[in-house]
Design a protein around this nucleic acid. Structure first.
Length: 649
RNA sequence: GCCACAGUGGCUCAGGGGUAGAGCAAUUCACUCGUAAUGAAUAGGUCGUGGGUUCAAUUCCCACCUGUGGCUCCA
């Protein structure tokens, strides 16, 4: 959909859209188009501002920009409603965000859930009034005076931060006017479906030094069905919440006695160990050597590494024999000492040292969140010591390895490259070289990535891998960090082919990131229905009555001997009851044994996802499950299907 | 750390100034059962912790702890 703006004329191509208004005098070099009509049978009614004479697209809700415009108008709608109901409140800012909008409002008392309902009602009224949304501009001085008159100090502050000669734009709907760059809908009546979702505190301008304002979150959609679908997605995310499922499946627990320090229960430990086994397997293949370094090390070490100066606030410290010690928040310094413990030749490089390191970080109490954000966690860490020539290949290898890991679990992810932060050490040349190498490696393997300015570690730039979870939240998991500083600080060396001493360069990297967080993400990703190889309990044997307990025990025993995680339901209950329980626990396979099975020496198989699979010989079932575990199959096939697959293979 | 809300048996939750109630789970008994809940009985809680108000507090008030949703921060 394109509109051609030329000499004040507007042309639309291929679509039945009526142009309502073209204004070219709104601000220097900008023109505004407002259009209404239909695209693909959907009403379109939006406006946009563009450089005069340019080709523009009509915004629709499917475009990021159009969606933001729509929701920004919803945000203004809410602000108007709040202002009508509570004239004394002061408005701060109210932008559109990824899945909705919010408005920060200064008010003595926070808003209650009941008040949200009232505000929604008022919003509906304003929608019905179908007020035109009109743009106008004022010079900066007049704009400031305007908001001083209205007694809106936050707006005044915002305008005062703009350059002296700015022309300030406003959007007016009925009696309500807000400072805004736009664009917006044409009329309040165009906002069809919205809901205020929550209230929260938020600092003015995001700084904890400033006043805490009241933020109201909401969302808006062009159709009621879309809103309903969105709300249903939120509900589904709640159902998959790893804290809920973790409790139901007895995977992990958080206790008052150790906030942020998770306990792993037997089922969770099985999952964790399975992940660790997998990790060891792939890292052995890639020629990593595993080490383990102490959790507590002395202050001098942390001074050498720079953590004492740069990371102190997040470290737990203690005193042993009148000397200061710290609990490790990262594994690197320990690995440096391991490297330093003996001389190295260039022939040893690249030297890949892995460590499943338990680190502790003092996170602020308010940020703790199930397994996703904890105070102690296991990093699947590795440090690669190498020559400058090896950087690119090593980075490419690690990116490939991480891709392999994420693909196994069926995750989507995106890559970010983070550059030098303010609080950092090292020279500009080192940083430029490090960032350059990371970029080159990513470009060579044609990986897509976005740049995250100033978000690197204090010792070097990093490549981050962000997984997407069921809520659409992204979690930072894998990271690859290039480090020129640590080798310098620890005076690491290797003897080159030339017989001279050289400094190695280090890659710090994690694939899972934190095993704890990764497990949290896995729980939500699979909604507790883990693939067979990960399931804490893989098979549950369900005897039809006590009469078949002995046979059931034999079956359980033969599975267990093959290393299958199997349990038997010994309760004196009916089959339906036991099936229901096993389904609730998301056990991949249920084996039903009764008179028939005992007689035939077989089992009846019920698959968690595919249901009743009929009966088969016990050893055939064992082969099937072992095959599935060995291949780390992502989906649980029906028995019939896998038999076919097995036959073909 | 900041703002708001919450904290009742193992779990999910009801109740509410006069020292607590349901369902599930657990235990026992009966039934011996064929693909998502058989029935009955029993046991289980000093209502997050500490103060205060009151004749009386689990209920009201204050502080703290923990959790939840955000902010800030982050694997």
């Amino acid at each position: 959909m394109e509109i051609k703006l030329k000499d004040g004329q507007v042309r639309l191509f291929d679509h039945n859209v009526t142009v309502l208004d073209v204004a070219k005098d709104i601000s220097p070099g900008l023109a505004r188009v407002a259009c209404a009509g239909e695209i693909d049978g959907e009403p379109v009614d939006l406006r946009a501002e563009v450089p005069d004479g340019s080709t523009v697209s009509i915004l629709t809700f499917d475009d990021d920009y159009g969606r933001h415009a729509y929701r920004h108008s919803a945000s203004h709608l809410m602000a108007q409603a709040v202002k009508r109901l509570y004239p004394d409140i002061k408005l701060a800012i109210g932008p559109a965000i990824d899945d909705g909008f919010y408005y920060d409002i200064d008010r003595q008392n926070p808003f209650t859930e009941d008040e949200l309902v009232l505000i929604e009602k008022e919003m509906k009224k304003i929608v019905k009034e179908n007020l035109p949304i009109e743009r106008f501009t004022l010079p900066r001085d007049e704009a400031i005076a305007y908001f001083q008159e209205l007694d809106e100090p936050y707006k005044v502050e915002l305008i005062e931060d703009l350059p002296e000669d700015s022309v300030i734009s406003f959007y007016k709907q009925g009696e309500f006017t807000d400072l805004c760059a736009g664009p917006h809908l044409d009329k309040t009546g165009q906002i069809k479906a919205f809901k205020l979702t929550s209230v929260a505190g938020a600092y003015w301008r995001g700084s904890e030094k400033n006043k805490m304002l009241n933020r109201i979150y909401g969302t808006a959609f062009p159709k009621k069905a879309q809103l309903a679908e969105y709300l249903e997605r939120i509900e589904e995310a709640k159902r998959r919440d790893h804290r809920k499922i973790g409790k139901e499946m007895e995977l992990f627990a958080l206790m008052e006695e150790g906030p942020g320090f998770p306990f792993f229960l037997p089922n969770g430990m099985r999952l964790k160990n399975t992940l660790i086994d997998y990790w060891r397997e792939i890292h052995t293949e890639e020629d990593y050597k595993e080490i383990q370094t102490p959790i507590i090390l002395n202050k001098e070490l942390w001074e050498t590494s720079g953590h004492w100066d740069h990371y102190r606030d997040n470290m737990y410290t203690t005193v042993i024999d009148e000397e200061d010690y710290a609990v490790k928040p990262m594994n690197c310094p320990g690995a440096m000492l391991v490297y330093k413990a003996k001389p190295h030749s260039y022939r040893d490089l690249p030297l890949r040292m892995g460590e499943l390191g338990l680190v502790h970080r003092h996170e602020k109490s308010g940020v703790l969140h199930g397994l996703m954000r904890v105070r102690c966690f296991t990093q699947d860490d590795a440090h690669i010591f190498m020559t400058p020539e090896q950087i690119k290949d090593e980075i490419k290898n690690v990116v490939r390895l991480i891709d392999e890991v994420y693909t196994l679990f069926g995750f989507k992810y995106h890559i970010e490259l983070s550059t030098r932060p303010e609080d950092s050490m090292g020279t500009d040349e080192d940083w430029d070289m490090a960032i350059g190498s990371l970029k080159d490696a990513l470009s060579e393997i044609e990986a897509d990535f976005v740049i995250n300015e100033g978000d690197g570690a204090f010792y070097g730039p990093k490549i981050d891998f962000h997984l997407e979870d069921s809520l659409g939240r992204s979690w930072q998991c894998g990271t690859i960090q290039l480090d020129f500083q640590m080798p310098e600080r620890f005076e690491l060396e290797y003897i080159g082919a030339d017989g001279e001493r050289h400094r190695p360069i280090i890659i710090h990297r994690v694939a899972f990131g934190s095993i704890e967080r990764f497990i949290g993400i896995l729980i939500e990703h699979f909604a507790g229905k883990f693939p067979t190889w990960l399931a804490p309990v893989q098979v549950k044997v369900l005897p039809i009555s006590e009469k078949y307990f002995e046979y059931a025990e034999n079956v359980t025993e033969s599975l267990s001997r093959q290393g299958i995680r199997v349990e038997m339901d010994r309760r004196d209950e009916k089959l339906g009851y036991k099936i229901r329980a096993a389904q609730t626990e998301h056990v991949p396979y249920m084996l039903i044994v009764g008179a028939k099975e005992e007689e035939e020496g077989g089992v009846s198989v019920r698959a968690r996802d595919a249901g009743d699979q009929g009966s088969m010989r016990t050893d055939a079932f064992i082969d099937l499950v072992l095959q599935q575990i060995k291949s780390r199959a992502l989906i649980q096939p029906g028995v019939a299907e896998s038999e076919e697959d097995g036959g073909q293979a």
